Amino acid sequence: MAQNYQYYVEGETEEKIIQVLKTDLQIIIPGKVKKFNVVEELFSPSHLTPLKRGTVAILVFDTDTDDSSIVQRNIKFLNGKSAIKSVFCIPQVKNLEEELIRCCNIRKIKELLSSKADRDFKKDVCNCNGLMSSLLKHEFDINKFWSGVRTKSWTFLRY
Rank of each mutant, 00 (worst) to 15 (best):
E40T: 15
A57I: 01
I17Y: 08
I17H: 10
K52L: 15
I29S: 07
S46W: 10
Q19T: 14
E41M: 05
E40P: 06
T55M: 15
G31W: 07
Q26K: 08
L21R: 04
D24I: 03
V56F: 02
L78T: 01
S44W: 10
Q26N: 11
I75K: 02
V71E: 00
I29F: 05
N74Y: 05
I27H: 00
F43E: 05
P30W: 02
A57F: 10
L21M: 06
E15L: 07
D24T: 10
L51K: 09
K52N: 12
A57K: 03
V60N: 08
E14D: 15
I29D: 06
T49G: 13
S69A: 11
N37H: 04
I75E: 01
E14P: 06
K34R: 12
L78I: 01
R73Q: 13
S68L: 11
I27L: 03
L48H: 03
Q26G: 00
I58L: 10
V39E: 00
I75P: 00
K34D: 02
L21N: 01
G54M: 13
V60R: 08
P50L: 12
T65P: 02
V56P: 03
R53C: 13
I29M: 06
K34C: 06
L78C: 09
T55A: 13
T23F: 07
L25Y: 07
V33H: 03
T55V: 15
S46L: 15
D24K: 06
Q26M: 11
E14F: 08
K52T: 14
V39C: 02
S44H: 13
D66R: 09
T23G: 08
D64N: 14
L48E: 05
A57D: 03
G80R: 12
S69E: 12
T65E: 13
D62N: 04
T23M: 10
S44Q: 14
D64I: 14
I27E: 00
F43S: 11
I18V: 12
V39H: 00
I18G: 12
S44R: 15
K52A: 15
F61N: 12
P45S: 05
P45N: 10
